[in-house]
Design a protein around this nucleic acid. Structure first.
Length: 405
RNA sequence: GGAACGGUGGCAGAGCGGACAAAUGCAUCCGCCUUGAAAGCGGAAGGCUCACAAGGCCCGGGGGUUCGAAUCCCUCCCGUUCCGCCA
């Protein structure tokens, strides 16, 4: 990384030198053109011709420098896009996910689970007819899921519940699920993580891995007024992930899939507003888990485990007794100005000159698959049926329990 | 998919090869006038690069012609209207 930084700094200096020389020549050319114009007007064609010749020579030199500048700039840009964000000073030190400290909880974790809860959700779900991954594979291949009956209803219920719970402060948006290369670059997925995304080459579009991608770019290239900030948005969307590096891992049930549904919350803010928003958004995601009465804990992501674009991150994990593991169900992050620089999202403060780069934050309010799995395991009853969490009742068409038919 | 017309400052809208960072109007800011306001009058004010200045760049994106491009040519993107097709 240090090497990368050095080479960027060196290239950037070279680019600056070149552009300074280029600009000096341009200034001369501009001066000559003015004089030529004046001479033409005065009818002095001979003098004008002489000046044109000198200007032409300068123009050739200018073109050479301009090309050189473009080349160096392209190299700088490419390197810059691959350099990670700086972690927040308060982010815990560490080298791997083993070093992520638990900052809240466990909350609602019973001393011990009943034997009927120790059944993996894929077994329960298959018995109840609410998950049909065999046929999903027939239709689309491995690592696709298909919920059926009340299983499908509950997946949708979770999304509606998440949306309704945040509608007090977040604008609901239904963004496109297919985006341009520029849009996927703005959030940091490109150029480095191209293998993780589905590409539709024929039309030069990409399937979004999360609604974070289109939502972040909504105000790309715009200058906002500070009074508008923070902007809060939320979206339900499908998410598409190739899971390139994880083939064969967590392939059972709903733990990992190429396509899943998620409700995302996102904010565009000033740097000053960001810390409080981060707290608020973690609180909102946490609230959903406690409302669903699932055992959960919150961990903070240490510097070594942090994604390249993140500044500070928290994960919410739900305990799933059938899998006997903590499942990551939500990740809320502050990106400082990393995404805003790429997307060029700025804001203007009334009475001040110039513009400032905004900050972005986002997180899953609720990602369906693992929450769905955790419900099927935690809410399993001795007879193999699954109770529907109370807060989902309004969205379940009257169903309060999922039983075998 | 086909055809026509467009894309210029916060907005509207002129400019269509030379003094254009760009008329004009609206909006904004500061004065004057007024008890206060409106109207009226006078003035200020774009962004990027940049320590500052100078210089350079920015009229949808990219390329080209030219001594010189908002203006001409090519190409791509986007928009509007009409036709076709479609959920």
């Amino acid at each position: 990384l240090l090497q990368q930084l050095d080479s960027v700094a060196g290239l950037d200096q070279r680019a600056r030198d070149i552009v300074a020389r280029r600009d000096a020549i341009r200034a001369e050319v501009n001066e000559f053109s003015k004089q030529v114009g004046a001479l033409r007007k005065a009818g002095d064609a001979e003098q004008a011709e002489a000046l044109q010749a000198r200007s032409r020579a300068l123009g050739d030199h200018e073109r050479v420098l301009a090309n050189e500048y473009d080349d160096v700039q392209a190299q700088v840009r490419d390197l810059l896009l691959r350099i990670p964000n700086l972690p927040h000073p308060d982010a815990p030190d560490g080298v791997s996910d083993a070093d992520n400290p638990v900052v809240t909880g466990p909350v609602g974790l019973p001393d011990e689970f009943a034997a009927h809860q120790r059944v993996p959700h894929w077994q329960t779900a298959a018995a109840l007819g609410i998950l049909d991954n065999e046929r999903a594979a027939k239709i689309s291949g491995a690592m696709f899921t298909m919920q059926r009956g009340l299983g499908a209803t509950m997946a949708r219920a979770l999304c509606q519940f998440a949306l309704d719970s945040n509608a007090d402060a977040f604008e609901e948006i239904r963004p496109p699920s297919l985006v341009t290369t520029a849009t996927l670059t703005a959030t940091g997925q490109l150029p480095k993580f191209a293998d993780d995304a589905y590409a539709i080459e024929r039309d030069d579009l990409w399937c979004i891995p999360t609604a974070e991608v289109p939502l972040t770019s909504i105000y790309a290239g715009e200058v906002l007024d500070e009074e508008q900030l923070p902007l809060r948005m939320m979206a339900f969307s499908p998410c598409y992930r190739r899971e390139a590096g994880s083939a064969g891992r967590d392939t059972r049930g709903m733990l990992r899939a190429h396509e899943f549904d998620k409700v995302e919350i996102l904010a565009v803010a000033t740097p000053q507003q960001a810390p409080e928003l981060l707290r608020e958004m973690v609180g909102r995601a946490e609230h959903l888990m406690s409302a669903l009465e699932l055992p959960y804990r919150i961990i903070e992501i240490c510097t070594g485990d942090m994604g390249q674009s993140h500044h500070r991150s928290f994960d919410i994990e739900v305990y799933s007794p059938g899998c006997d593991s903590w499942l990551e169900v939500s990740s809320i992050s502050w990106f400082s100005d990393y995404q805003s620089r790429r997307a060029d999202i700025r804001y203007r403060t009334a009475g001040e000159k110039g513009t400032n780069v905004a900050n972005t934050l986002n997180g899953s309010a609720l990602a369906v698959p693992r929450v769905w799995a955790a419900i099927v395991e935690n809410y399993r009853q001795p007879d193999g049926s699954v109770l529907v969490p109370t807060v989902l009742h309004p969205y379940m068409r009257g169903a309060t329990v999922i039983s075998a038919t």
